[in-house]
Amino acid sequence: MIAFDLQCASGHTFEGWFDDKTAFETQQKQGLVTCPFCDDSNVFIVPSAFAIPRAVTSSRGPRQNSGLAVGDISAKIVEFMEQNFDDVGANFAKEALKIHYGVTEPRNIRGVSSPEEEKVLEKEGVPLFKVPLPAKKGVQDA
């Protein structure tokens, strides 16, 4: 179920629960969605208000966020991958298949693959997890 914030033509705002957006649209076309305040059937979805708190307050006082910015998290992921995965470069698909079929010892690998190679890996049942990595500083696209 999805909760949508709804509003009628008179400006009354209320909440409606539906299986999905299509269910809302179907019920709306049938005149089944009406404002609980004025019974107006001219109802539409409005953007929901939400917020992400900077700090969370608990019974023990405020808890500050971790202080890690997105860039810091990305840098930590890159560092972890560089330290814990063998970089096989453009041979990623070949190495992944060798590991999958027991030709070489299992190990964590990273590298690049083409969409065609990824289709082969998927067809062969090789688990694949793509992680977009930020470009290294000072390296420009050719």
Rank of each mutant, 00 (worst) to 15 (best):
K136S: 11
L32V: 07
D72S: 09
H12I: 05
S114A: 11
V70K: 10
T26H: 04
G89A: 13
R110L: 02
V88P: 09
N65K: 10
D20T: 05
D86W: 05
G67Y: 08
C8M: 09
K29R: 14
C35F: 02
F37T: 02
P106M: 05
V131K: 00
F80M: 06
G138V: 01
L133Q: 06
F50Q: 03
G67I: 06
I52E: 10
R107A: 11
A9D: 15
Q7A: 12
E105M: 12
E82C: 14
A135I: 00
V126G: 04
E25P: 01
F18S: 12
G61N: 06
D19V: 03
N65E: 08
E15Q: 13
S58R: 10
L133R: 08
Y101A: 06
N108H: 15
K123L: 13
C8Y: 10
E15K: 11
G111I: 00
Q27K: 12
V56N: 11
N84P: 13
N65R: 08
K94S: 15
T104K: 04
F44W: 05
Q7L: 03
D20V: 00
P134N: 04
C35H: 07
T22S: 12
Q28L: 09
A3K: 13
N91K: 15
S41P: 08
V33R: 07
E15T: 10
D72M: 08
N65Q: 13
P47C: 00
H12R: 02
G89Y: 07
I73H: 05
K123V: 07
G125C: 05
S114T: 14
G67K: 04
V33P: 02
G111T: 01
H100F: 10
P36L: 03
I77P: 00
A51S: 14
E15S: 06
V56D: 04
A135N: 08
